[in-house]
Write a protein that binds this DNA or RNA. Sequence first.
DNA 1: CGAACCTCCTGCGGGC
DNA 2: TGCCCGCAGGAGGTTC
Length: 273
Amino acid sequence: MPELPEVENVKRSLEQVGVVGRRFVGVELHAKTLRTPLKKKMNQDLKGQQIVGLKRRAKFIIFETDDFILLNHLGMTGSWRVRDSEQPKLKHDHVILNFDAGFELVYNDPRRFGLLELMPKAKMPTHPWLKSLGLEPFDDNFTGEFLFQISRGIKAPIKNFIMDQRRLVGVGNIYASEALFRSQIRPSRAAGKVKKEEAHRLADSIRRILQQAIDSGGSTIRDYRNTHGETGGFQNLFQVYDRKDKPCFVCHDSIRAKFLAGRNTYWCHKCQR
DNA sequence: CGAACCTCCTGCGGGC
DNA sequence: TGCCCGCAGGAGGTTC
């Protein structure tokens, strides 16, 4: 479900509800596995640990405690919410983090594509889930020049290329289509055929669109909610995503759709070359 | 190595 | 109205 803007908003809303500074009383596991098995040891390890920081890396949320990193990915349908003790447990409430003063954080995830793994702090840099991640789009080193250089000789479609988390992180299926529309590049074009000037436009579009989406609270197609239960607003600003056969807002030609990287991809054939 | 599929899982909207 | 099919914000694994 969530791409960088949604994950960033979840992370910020977790900060707002006051997660940082809380001390773990325990962890309740109500499922055997998410994307990977939920380890029972998590409960013992986290007991007494204080959350000292909250970070986002790519589409991961990182809970930092005194001694551990609790790594979380929301997959397609993962969400966090604060539960008051009166509230009954809901379907797909797989993990409950119990903190001091009765504060409870619930991880809900119908499809269980999400991830929750605990590791010692020192293991983080070499952890399989994190070690191969590419540049953050808001890193100063992420430039059109960078995008141009790393895409030379790549035959895969540019859309697949910008979604590949090993090069650039944070862009998923929605923002790939949207960023390519705004940079006037067809999603199916071979990455290696993207010109230097276009690479600059694309890098700028990616950064701008992700920032706009963050500012709008992310995009809610169906499931996405932040920790307060609020939906995003960026879905109202889609130019092409999920607009097959609808008129392009710029030239009024019909928006086209086809599968790339196994996912539906949207573009305007006139505006994008 | 890269690229095209497959896979995990549940829910829901559209079509018949 | 109800059932069935296909598709959904991800991404690692498999195969060629």
